[in-house]
Design a protein around this nucleic acid. Structure first.
Lengths: 191, 191
DNA sequence: CCTATTCCTTAACCTACATCAAGCTCATTT
DNA sequence: AAATGAGCTTGATGTAGGTTAAGGAATAGG
């Protein structure tokens, strides 16, 4: 399937839009390519775009006062990535968004999205559903982080996103799980 | 301000709706009252409504395999509460939603909301924005839980939601912060 | 007004995971 | 082919916060 059609395919999973609207949507997006280890966003910059990953892998993270990186999102193909806080407010971001592989994206600007909401009402519904699911997900992860052990969280991730382990270095997965690489290594050893 | 108008007031903070639409919205909601310590939802039940708290205080929590309660939401006046996962999927819930005070709510059924989305397009936008903000918030809380100490999380809550400390028993606040009541007590002592 | 809960605190001890430090294995660069 | 560094593991030691157990203060109910 062509990358553009993948986007439409995922939108149509949740809302109905006409063929004409499909074209309006597609023409609002701009294909982009980013090389491994390059940043889409760095702290202090305003996040100008929302990105749909058609092929590849991205992470977002912040660096704390001691200089330690903390990863809070890892996203593979057919997922959205952005700093929603900065994008939505159009104020400077606190986060990095970085490619973990050479990655192909479709990007949409803040104004572009606002226009689309008006031109294609179905898209407002699509994003309402998307954010709703993302929110449910974040709460689940929050509960797991608060109340489950590192081992349980590791097992959950393994059973739900095995693909991440094939494509992302363990240091990053450890950070995403909220533990040190050493702890992750010991967890894996004990299997 | 009348409870009904408070709801409209909060909606109009984010979207424009006509006076006629206001009435359509209001008439879709049903005022409810719930006594302290009573449940709006228990595990196994489908969450049939989304609730707007006009006056009072609610918590949502789950009980783990060992019988321990874990609170993941505490909501005061002028906030929404529901089990979004169950409400959205209309499948059985894993959570309790319980009143911490005698509480006045406006409730809206799943079908009622679906109708409103179609009759009042602005409402789709309102909920898109609401979920978007809720998602950003949940990610912030996730980061804090993973990477900040209990003391920092306590201070954050104190500076952002001091009102909670006046109205909610510390046992519940401890659980919401992801710590034991004993730890919370020690943190407070050291001030 | 007395009793029973609910709520909160304190102290002694324990444990999951972090930190620090070292070394090993590949892949990449020169 | 040697040198570099990214990615991962292992072991020794440290610590934030949990667990267990007890008691006191405040509130509610009979």
């Amino acid at each position: 399937m062509e990358p553009e059609n993948k986007l439409i395919y995922y939108i149509k999973k949740w809302v109905n839009i006409t063929e004409e609207e499909e074209n309006t949507v597609l023409s609002a997006f701009e294909p982009t390519l980013i090389k491994k280890k390059k940043d889409l966003l760095v702290p202090g910059e305003v996040c100008k775009y929302i990105y749909f990953i058609t092929n590849g892998c991205m992470r977002s993270y912040f660096v704390d006062a001691k200089g330690v990186e903390h990863i809070y999102q890892i996203r593979l193909d057919n997922n959205w990535i952005t700093d929603l806080e900065s994008f939505f407010s159009q104020r400077p971001s606190k986060y990095y968004i970085e490619a973990l592989e050479d990655t192909r994206l479709l990007r949409l600007s803040f104004d572009g999205l606002e226009n689309l909401y008006n031109e294609v009402p179905g898209l407002e519904r699509y994003f309402r559903i998307l954010f709703q699911k993302a929110y449910i997900n974040a709460l689940e992860r929050l509960n797991a982080t608060m109340w489950e052990s590192a081992v349980e969280r590791y097992n959950d991730l393994l059973s739900e996103h095995k693909d991440i382990f094939q494509r992302v270095p363990l240091v990053y997965i450890a950070s995403y799980l909220g533990i040190t690489p050493e702890s992750l290594s010991r967890i894996r050893k004990s299997k």
